[in-house]
Amino acid sequence: MTTLYLDAFSGISGDMFLGMLLDLGLDFDQLKTELAKLQVTGYELTQARKAESSIYGTSFDVIVPTGKDHGFVEHHHDHDHEHAHEHHHQHGRHLHEIVALIQGSTLSEQVKNRAIAIFTEIAKAEATVHQMPLSDVHFHEVGALDSIVDIVGCCVGLELMGIDTLLASPLAEGSGFINVAHGQMPVPVPAVMQMRVGTQIPIKQRLDVETELITPTGMGIVKTLVSDFGPMPENMVPVKVGYGFGSRDTGGFNALRGILVEKKN
């Protein structure tokens, strides 16, 4: 059994999580081989070893041709927009389509189940925020591809590294607003705030950081896979430390620290 402790002093995203796993020793080629089982194209994976504040870590990214957004749209309920619905439907994916894609792959059952659970948590939050049925939640073409690779990649990485238990510190979140395709969103973004409902996930807001630190993908991973929150347990010994860098300019050291730990003898 292998335990991973997430030190989320600067929040969490899918890219940061995968960068951290790669920094801890996840094999990049193995990751790409497993993700190829999804049989989706149109993306490129990159990793780079770099230093921030003289601390070395790994930056990971999913490169898609037309850039990134938050990955969700809501369907209008006005029949005059029927043509627009068709256009969006052709260039995006609904939750049931993403579930079918994952289920139809040759990935392991554990990876499939974990990835579907994370996607479902995010979609439920979006459905509540936008006051729509779960079946209408619609991932943009780019957002869907980016999210699929990030979420499935995180689940693949955990399995390849034999990590079965995830623990985490309280999460840090920023403040202010971010601009997305549909306008401004307050931080925490609505989907992240909605995923907090009914949980005791500890989040400390950093008023010195005026941007998003916790993405919906990051929150979905935490809510679905982390079993406990708090300081690193006293009966655990750190074995290896890795850093996954975030892409946002937070004005400070922006990384997710992962610590592989084992119980004291």
Rank of each mutant, 00 (worst) to 15 (best):
K37L: 12
P65C: 05
I12R: 01
I12A: 03
L6Q: 06
S13L: 07
H75E: 12
L45R: 01
E52K: 14
F9D: 04
L35E: 09
L26V: 07
E86R: 11
Q30N: 15
Q39G: 03
L26C: 04
S10N: 03
K37N: 09
D7A: 05
I12F: 00
K37A: 13
D27R: 10
I63E: 07
G19P: 12
V73C: 12
F60C: 03
S10H: 03
Q39H: 13
A51H: 15
I63F: 01
Q47A: 11
G67N: 03
Q30V: 14
T66C: 06
P65K: 00
D15S: 04
I55E: 00
G19W: 07
L21Y: 08
F72D: 04
I55L: 09
L24I: 03
V64W: 01
L38I: 10
G67T: 04
S59I: 09
M16W: 02
E86Q: 15
G92T: 07
G71F: 04
V64M: 03
G25E: 05
E82I: 15
D7L: 06
A36K: 13
M16C: 02
L24W: 02
T46Q: 13
Q47E: 11
R93D: 08
I63G: 01
A48V: 12
E82F: 14
G71E: 07
V64E: 00
G92Y: 02
D15V: 08
E86Y: 15
K68M: 03
K32H: 05
D80Q: 15
R49F: 09
L6N: 07
L31W: 04
L6C: 04
L6T: 05
Q30C: 14
H77N: 11
I55G: 04
V73D: 15
H83K: 13
D78I: 13
D27A: 15
H94L: 12
H87G: 06
H87T: 12
K37D: 05
E52M: 08
K32P: 06
S54H: 14
H89I: 06
K50D: 15
M16V: 02
S53V: 14
V40G: 01
L18F: 00
K37E: 10
